[in-house]
Structures are given as structure tokens and as C-alpha cells.
Design a protein around this nucleic acid. Structure first.
Lengths: 272, 272
DNA sequence: TTGCTCCTCACGTCACGTGAGGTGGC
DNA sequence: TTGCTCCTCACGTCACGTGAGGTGGC
């Protein structure tokens, strides 16, 4: 037997606010068992209490309402648990990120020396296997990993050798609007037709100032800040995408090594 | 020396989006070093790069902009570090909460038996030392702890004995609107004038259905749900605040024991 | 003249919270 | 008749993101 509760009674029983319950009704997440036609009063069934409590838990875990709905509408327990597990995994990744960020903040505030070595370089045009796409800021790291993986597979499948490190080109709008075109590429000497989704691109030549970043990508902005400051104070910056090279780790370190290449005037690369 | 960057250059150097930088300017968090009068162009100094990176870290830690501003405006390093530490502590508490919530969600989904024992009781009027206040949902647990602490102190100062357990009365609006009047109280036999902020209140009599909740407050809603269902299905609910009794832990358990008292008709307490 | 960078509104997002103003049954 | 519970807009919150429409210098 399942009897009916008014919205206020249901709020008391579930600890969900009346406003929240109306909202869940509006978006179709939790429909009242009955709605009185004349008064539009919402009536909830006692059988809906457990569902409401699950919603409360999932919201406490900051799961978006769309995902909560997916959990509730899951066709079976396996699908439901998978949706929850995916969310918990994202939360765990966030936690790891948080710890990194705290460490990074401490070192920033401690004022750990941020003088960097800058080297000028003239990069020749680079024939490469490449994948280009419009990518949002938050998806970039994952996208890049996937794209480089695909490129590695293409090299292996074609049996050809790479002619340079894993690399990427970042458009200005990617930094300015946090969404923009990225090009993941690996230099090649070969010529054969690439597989679907992979292009042969001649990455243009460029004069750049190069700084080497050791360590987590989360701290790349420090190198960008120092390099941007360096280039600005010398008034040698020019338009053009920024280029990153992801170098192999030689030696004992397990920290990644990234070269950041910032476009500068040709004249700058000529001066001592 | 500190030279100037356009907003786009500054975005590239700091990895903050142009939109975010404009917003930080609008709310006075990060003012451009210079603003061109005719064009309203924003110009940032290279010396502002480190500040921008700190803002980025703090925002990554989900610190609200007001608190970020407080950190940046802190008069000294100690004040600054205290503000950051306070935020990190809140994050840690959240994490502990999250783990509790996950466990609670699992047990909910596992369908762990939620049949509860309900006992009827007629509560006599209870003369008590009490603190009443309008309290928001998220502040309730902290407020209650503080209020009960004050009441304990009052008993000790007056040298009188308590006549019942720590208790609280929750108004309907507290559950329905997530803000409402709470009354923390401890029954007393004494009469003397209470200290400032503490009143002598005769908590009204009530007929109630009582369920005992063992364990964390985070799971109290399960007992509320079961009790609300119980009361609704018997159609014995009546208006009135809900009362909680926080019992001492007898024996080995370190889990709190809470009695939840839900107002019902007098007739109900008379039936077997 | 075309592109590019920058500008300022105005509005959208997400999950509700905050009133305002009004209705129906004890 | 007064209170109480419920209702529906409309708008606010927070930290930006998303366009639209427009300007100034190479």
C-alpha cells in the first residue's frame, strides 16, 4: 500500500526542500504520483520516498540532474551501477587534481624561483602525420592523449619511422576563449596515404623562443607565464600558434619534459 | 621592469580566458595595470602574471571569488595562509562527507532493510534551558553543537542538574524551505535566571511516534523517510515541530543514538 | 578595403532560492 | 474571517560562456 503525502509532508520525510521538489517535477526528474486537477496540488506516494533519498545522495555527490535521471532510468542494475561508478571515478580524478593544485599553489606562494632558460630556435617546415580538431579546454589533455595514440598506431601500421617528437599546435583562440583548434602531430619522412581521420600536414616554419618545462602539465602555466613575460619584455612576440614538443624521458626521471615554443620575430633568433 | 600585454596576450601567458579576465576586472579582482582612455583597451603588466596564476590555482580549488580577493588583499602572509588553510579544511571536510555519502548511497541501493521500530509516546511539557534561532539548513549541525555546548556551560555554571537528554525542536519550515526556527534545549528542574542568550522555555507537550536512529546524522533522512511513511500510511500525522533527542552512548558503540519524534494524534498513542 | 583584436551590452547556464501575488479548505 | 498550505510566475545567485554588433589601427 502506498498512500499520498502533500509536498510539505514529503519534504519533511525526505529532507528535500519544497522548492527542490517543484524543480525536480518541472524537469521531469521526480513526478508526483498524483496531481489534483483543480488545485494543481502535488501528491507524492510513500513508495517514492526511497527514490527521493537516492536523489538526495546523488546530489550531495554533486551529480548533475541529467545524470541523476540517467541513473534512475537505468534499464538494469549493471547500467545503474556503471553510471554511478563513472561519476565516482571522475570525483576521484578531481581529488587527485586538487592535491596537485594545492602543492602547486604552495610552491607558487613560496616564490620558488621562476627564472627560466630561454633558447631561440628557427624551426623548419615539418611534414607530419596530424589530427586537427576544435577542442574545448577541459577536454584537451584527454583529446591529445587519444590523438597521439592514433598517430602512433598509424606509424606502426605503415611501418615507417617518426622524424621528431610528439607535438601539438595550439591556436590563439584555444587560450583566449578556452576552445579552439588543436593539431596533434608527429613528424614523418614517409609519404603513404594515411588512415581515416589522419592527415599529412606541412607544419609551417617558425621562429620561436623555447622554454623547457619539467613536470606535471598542471604547472605548464608557470612556464607560459615566464615565457610570455620574457617575450613581452623584449617586445619580440609575433602572431602564430604556440607549439609544444613532448620529449621522451631520458634517464631516471619519470616527470614529463615539455618544450614550449612561443613565436617571435626572426630578428630575435639572430641576436646573441 | 614591467611591460604591458594586451588582454589576449595576457590570456595566453596565464591560461585564463579573456572572458574570465574581463569578469575579474568587472568585479575588481584583477584590475588591468592600464586602461586606454579612448579605446577602453585593457593592458596588463608582466608583473601581474604571478597574481593571475595564483588566482587560477585558487579557482581550480573552487574558492569563491570573494575569498580569492580576501587572499590577495591579505595584509600579511599569516592572514593569507590562514584564509587558504580555512578553505582547504572545508574541502577536507567535504571529502569526508563525500565518503560517508558514497557508503550511504551503496547501502540505500543495496536495499538494506529499512523497517524500523516505531514506539508511541506522550511527552509531557518540559521546562528547559533553551536557545532558539533562525537557522539555515547547512549551518544546522554546527549551530546545534554550539548551542548545546552553551547550554551545558549554563548548567555547569548554575550548578544544577539536567532532567533529560540534549534535544532540539525543528520547525516545519526548516525542512520545507531549508531555513527555519530551531530550538536547542535541555530539560531542567532548576529555576534561576539563565545567562544571556539562553531562555527558560516550556517545551509543549506532544503525542509522537518515535523511531530510534543509530549512526551518522547524514543518514537521519532514512529514519525520517521510514517514520514519515509509517505515519502517513496510518493517517495519524498532525501539525507540529519535530523533536529530536540525542541520547548518551551507553556501552561500546561510538555511534550516536538519536530519537526522532514525529507528532501524531493523541488517539494513535492510545491504540495498541 | 579586409582582418584582426579589442570593446560593450544582453542573455544563457545550472540548480535551485527568494519573494510577490493569489487560491481553496478548515 | 483568519491561517495555513499550496500554487504559479518572475527574478536573483555564481562565475563565467555565448553570441551580437560595433570600433580602431595595420
Amino acid at each position: 500500500m502506498s498512500t499520498l503525502l502533500s509536498i510539505g509532508e514529503f519534504a519533511r520525510a525526505t529532507h528535500l526542500s519544497v522548492k527542490a521538489l517543484r524543480h525536480y517535477h518541472d524537469v521531469g526528474l521526480l513526478e508526483p504520483a498524483d496531481i489534483e486537477p483543480t488545485s494543481a496540488y502535488r501528491w507524492y506516494a510513500t513508495a517514492q520516498v526511497p527514490t527521493a533519498l537516492v536523489i538526495r545522495r546523488l546530489r550531495d555527490l554533486e551529480m548533475p540532474l541529467d545524470e541523476v535521471r540517467a541513473v534512475l532510468d537505468a534499464p538494469n542494475v549493471a547500467a545503474r551501477d556503471a553510471a554511478i561508478a563513472a561519476h565516482l571515478q571522475r570525483m576521484e580524478q578531481q581529488l587527485a587534481q586538487t592535491q596537485q593544485t594545492v602543492a602547486s599553489l604552495r610552491s607558487l606562494l613560496a616564490g620558488t624561483a621562476s627564472n627560466i632558460d630561454v633558447e631561440y630556435r628557427t624551426i623548419d617546415p615539418t611534414r607530419s602525420l596530424a589530427i586537427r580538431e576544435l577542442v574545448a579546454w577541459d577536454d584537451a589533455e584527454l583529446w591529445l592523449g587519444g590523438a597521439l595514440g592514433q598517430l602512433h598506431d598509424a606509424f606502426e601500421a605503415a611501418g615507417i619511422e617518426r622524424a621528431g617528437p610528439d607535438s601539438a599546435l595550439y591556436s590563439g583562440t584555444f587560450f583566449e576563449a578556452h576552445v579552439g583548434e588543436l593539431i596533434a602531430f608527429v613528424p614523418t619522412l614517409g609519404e603513404g596515404a594515411p588512415p581515416d581521420g589522419i592527415q599529412i600536414v606541412d607544419i609551417p616554419a617558425a621562429d620561436v623562443a623555447v622554454a623547457v618545462h619539467q613536470g606535471s602539465f598542471d604547472e605548464l602555466d608557470r612556464t607560459y607565464g615566464a615565457l610570455g613575460t620574457f617575450v613581452t619584455e623584449r617586445a619580440i612576440g609575433v602572431e602564430g600558434p604556440i607549439r609544444e614538443h613532448y620529449l621522451e624521458n631520458h634517464g631516471a626521471s619519470d616527470e614529463p619534459t615539455t618544450e614550449v615554443c612561443w613565436p617571435v620575430t626572426h630578428a630575435a633568433t639572430r641576436s646573441p
